[in-house]
Simulated scan of single mutants.
Amino acid sequence: MAHAEQLKQTGRYPGCRWSPSPNFGSRPQNSKISLLVVHNISLPPGQFGGPEIEQFFCNQLDPAGHPYFETIASVQVSAHALVRRDGSVIQFVSCLERAWHAGRSCFGAEEECNDFSIGIELEGTDDIPYTPEQYQTLASMVRLTMMAWPDVTPDRVAGHCDIAPGRKTDPGPAFDWPYFSALLADQEIA
Score class of each variant (00 low, 15 high):
Met1Trp: 03
Ala2Gly: 01
Ala4Thr: 01
Gln6Met: 13
Leu7Pro: 12
Gln9Ile: 07
Thr10Ser: 12
Gly11His: 06
Pro14His: 09
Gly15His: 11
Cys16Met: 13
Arg17Pro: 04
Arg17Gln: 12
Arg17His: 09
Ser19Lys: 03
Ser19Tyr: 02
Ser19Val: 11
Pro20Gln: 03
Asn23Tyr: 00
Phe24Lys: 13
Gly25Ile: 02
Ile33Ala: 09
Leu36Val: 15
Val37Gly: 03
Pro44Leu: 08
Pro45Gln: 02
Gln47Pro: 02
Pro51Asn: 13
Pro51Trp: 00
Glu52Tyr: 11
Ile53Gln: 10
Glu54Ala: 10
Cys58His: 11
Asn59Met: 08
Gln60His: 13
Leu61Met: 10
Leu61Cys: 13
Asp62Trp: 01
Asp62Tyr: 04
His66Ala: 11
Phe69Arg: 07
Glu70Thr: 12
Thr71Met: 12
Ile72Met: 04
Gln76Trp: 00
Gln76His: 13
Ala81Glu: 04
Val83Cys: 12
Val83Gln: 09
Arg84Ser: 02
Arg84Ile: 00
Arg85Cys: 07
Arg85Ser: 10
Asp86Ala: 08
Gly87Ile: 11
Val89Ser: 08
Val89Gln: 10
Ile90Asn: 03
Ser94Phe: 01
Ser94Trp: 01
Cys95Arg: 04
Leu96Met: 10
Arg98Asp: 05
Ala99Val: 08
His101Pro: 01
Phe107Asp: 02
Gly108Asp: 03
Ala109Thr: 06
Ala109Cys: 02
Glu111Trp: 02
Glu111Ala: 11
Cys113Glu: 07
Phe116Asp: 04
Ile120Asp: 05
Glu121Leu: 12
Glu121Lys: 10
Glu121Ser: 09
Gly124Trp: 00
Gly124Met: 01
Gly124Asp: 07
Thr125Cys: 09
Asp126Phe: 00
Asp127Asn: 11
Asp127Ser: 11
Pro132Ser: 04
Pro132Cys: 05
Glu133Thr: 14
Gln134Ile: 02
Tyr135Ile: 07
Thr137Val: 04
Ala139Arg: 10
Ser140Leu: 14
Met141Asn: 05
Met141Gly: 00
Arg143Pro: 00
Met146Leu: 05
Met147Pro: 04
Trp149Arg: 09
Pro150Ala: 03
Pro150Tyr: 05
Val152Phe: 06
Thr153His: 00
Asp155Glu: 14
Gly159Leu: 03
Ile163Phe: 08
Pro165Cys: 05
Pro165Gly: 07
Pro165Trp: 14
Asp170Thr: 15
Asp170Val: 15
Pro173Phe: 00
Ala174His: 07
Pro178Lys: 14
Pro178Leu: 09
Tyr179Leu: 14
Phe180Tyr: 12
Ser181Leu: 10
Asp186Pro: 03
Asp186Trp: 00
Glu188Arg: 15
Ala190His: 06
Ala190Glu: 05
